[in-house]
Write a protein that binds this DNA or RNA. Structure first.
Lengths: 243, 243
DNA sequence: GACGTATTCAAACGTATGTTTACCGTAAAC
DNA sequence: GTTTACGGTAAACATACGTTTGAATACGTC
């Protein structure tokens, strides 16, 4: 935000206390293209899209500046490539688990089963620490409040299909809930999920680390009963108790 | 993200289809300092902190470039001034309503009353359309995923006191809920609130405008029963039903 | 070994950035 | 009537930005 202190050397060229020391060994075994993907994912998640420069990315990935445009065409192309690599597996896994729910004997599937199938991939997949932990989750959360056009298109492309499939299944599991009410509650579901993935540090600051949103498993354990109860709350527009 | 087409004139100097046409008349009656506050709030909310330049702000506010640094010292100083002007009223109103809840005859205050007192100021205050609608709400939501140091400090300063007060009161209204479980659920509450304030357009894209998060009153009506049910869900760690 | 494609590289291009400087105009205070 | 303080202005400063260029290198194929 404020003017950076004048760089002594070419921008981003020096080591700057290597932020990727923890995965330097992993990075060394990757191709330049893959290195850029991994590094940019984490930098975007930590600093925001606009705050990260292509020079910063290429320096951290230890590749030449022009390599980024050679492989991805532009900074935005790099972002799309990250989503291609990370979001698709999550969406695919969601669809796979939804199919499993539908095939299970006791139909229609329980609300809790659907919530788990929807949330588990997002909150735990791609969290392998060898790739720098929950970087993609934070990036996805951040994209929800970025520069509109770009991010909205990318999120739609990545998640619309699986989200809509789950909305239909959950609606079927809640036959008494009016459509409008259900839309609001699904919106709230997305809010808890995205806010957890963002791990803004706010709840830690308020409670002194009483809970840690980065712990995807714990988050799920607490989130599912909370959401299930919310979804099953009586509707505020003519409830099922109408005469 | 991609390189903007080359500007014909000095950056931001031309009209560019005046994005503030709706409040131009209001702006004209304000001092340069106030104009910058109002304009920057909306631009920050729409584009993100890093994506908005001081030239863009000063051009839109129709003040000289150097005026921004004269009044606020820096771009970051301007952001803090916006929070000073907008967040304090919200936090103050929260505390006022909390005191009202505590004084009411039927104590302890109902969970729903506390939720309303906490959420209503955030979701409806500062939405006066004369200042360009829910700009501050979107800005606050966006700040939750911005460049860490800056935003975290600003959010803490603005909201820690009132949030902690409400946590204590809500905990008292839920005597059977373990502290750790409550922390998670308060975190989820923040998620639904922030995501609603962000109004990312995601739910509209998924449902075809079945609900509109920018409608603070409707959001509250749906949010409070949802959250109350979630908070009252049985605890997953030893519930009250223990022998 | 020579050819052709794929990748890497150093350097530059043009422009945008946050911030500072030094100079004007105004209007109340003495 | 000069001083003082405040707000506004144009121009410049230094550097960061995304992107492009054209030559150099690697590499598998014939």
């Amino acid at each position: 935000m404020s003017t950076e202190p004048p760089r002594l050397v070419e921008a981003g060229a020096q080591e700057q206390e290597d932020r990727f020391a923890d995965i330097r060994a992993v990075l060394a075994g990757l191709t330049p293209r893959e290195r850029m993907l991994v590094v940019a994912e984490r930098l975007f998640a930590d600093e925001g899209l606009a705050a990260v420069s292509v020079r910063g990315i290429t320096a951290a990935a230890q590749v030449n500046l022009a390599s980024l445009h050679y492989h991805f065409g532009s900074k935005e192309g790099l972002l799309e490539a990250i989503f291609e690599a990370r979001a698709k597996p999550i969406a695919d896994e969601r669809m796979r688990r939804l199919a499993e729910c539908a095939e299970a004997p006791g139909r229609p599937p329980l609300l809790e089963q659907l919530l788990f199938a929807f949330l588990h991939p997002a909150l735990t997949l791609g969290l392998e620490p060898r790739f720098g932990g929950p970087a993609f989750a934070r990036l996805r959360a951040r994209l929800g409040s970025e520069s509109e056009k770009v991010s909205r298109r990318i999120l739609s492309k990545a998640f619309d299909e699986s989200s809509k499939a789950f909305m239909a299944a959950m609606q079927a599991a809640l036959p008494d809930l009016p459509r409008g009410e259900f839309a609001w509650r699904f919106h709230f579901l997305l809010g808890t999920m995205v806010y957890t993935m963002a791990d803004s540090g706010r709840i830690q600051s308020l409670t002194g680390n009483a809970c840690d949103p980065a712990d995807g498993r714990a988050a799920l354990d607490h989130l599912i009963p909370f959401l299930a109860a919310g979804f099953r709350a009586p509707s505020i527009v003519g409830s099922g108790a109408a005469p």
